[in-house]
Computed example of a mutant assay.
Amino acid sequence: MTELITTRRLFSSLEELMLHRGVLVSRETVRRWCAKFGRACANGLRRRRPRPGDKWHLDEVFVRINGQLRYLWRAVDAGGNVLDVLVQSRRDKAAARRFLRRLMKKTRAVPRVVVTDKLRSYGAAHREVMPSVEHRQSKYLDNRAENSHQPTRRRERAMKGFRSVGAAQRFLSAFSGTSPHFRPCRHLMTATGHRAEMTVRFAVWDQITGAADLPAEA
Rank of each mutant, 00 (worst) to 15 (best):
M1K: 02
T2L: 13
E3N: 13
E3M: 12
T6M: 11
T6Q: 09
R8M: 15
R9S: 07
L10V: 12
L10W: 08
F11C: 06
F11V: 10
S12N: 07
L14A: 09
E16A: 12
V23D: 09
V25I: 12
E28L: 07
T29I: 05
V30N: 02
R31H: 09
R32Y: 05
W33T: 08
C34N: 02
C34K: 00
A35G: 10
A35E: 15
F37D: 01
G38N: 01
R39Y: 14
R39F: 09
R39L: 08
A40P: 00
A40E: 01
A40I: 02
A42G: 04
G44F: 13
G44K: 04
G44T: 08
G44A: 11
R48M: 08
P50H: 10
P50V: 15
P50S: 14
D54T: 11
W56K: 03
L58F: 03
N66E: 13
N66C: 15
Q68M: 13
L72D: 07
L72V: 14
R74F: 11
R74T: 07
D77I: 12
A78G: 14
G80L: 04
D84N: 03
L86Y: 03
V87W: 00
V87Q: 00
S89E: 05
S89I: 08
R90Y: 05
K93S: 09
K93W: 05
A94H: 10
A96N: 00
R97T: 13
R98P: 02
R98A: 07
L100K: 02
R102L: 11
K105M: 13
K106F: 15
R108M: 04
A109L: 09
V110Q: 09
V110I: 13
P111A: 12
R112P: 02
V113Q: 04
V114R: 06
T116H: 14
T116Q: 09
T116A: 09
K118L: 10
K118S: 09
L119C: 15
Y122P: 04
A124G: 11
A124F: 15
H126S: 03
R127F: 11
M130R: 02
P131K: 01
P131A: 07
S132T: 05
S132L: 14
E134G: 06
Q137T: 03
Q137V: 04
K139L: 04
Y140I: 03
D142I: 00
N143E: 09
A145L: 08
N147C: 04
S148T: 15
S148N: 14
Q150K: 05
Q150A: 06
Q150M: 15
T152R: 01
T152K: 00
R154W: 05
R155E: 11
A158M: 12
S164Y: 04
G166S: 15
A167G: 12
A167L: 13
Q169G: 08
F171K: 00
L172I: 10
S173P: 00
F175Q: 02
F175A: 04
T178Y: 02
T178L: 13
S179T: 05
H181F: 15
R183V: 06
R186A: 11
L188N: 06
M189L: 15
A191W: 05
H194D: 07
R195F: 12
R195N: 13
R195L: 13
T199L: 06
T199E: 01
R201H: 01
F202Q: 06
W205E: 04
D206H: 06
Q207V: 10
Q207L: 13
T209M: 09
G210C: 08
G210S: 15
D213Y: 05
L214Y: 01
L214N: 00
A218M: 11
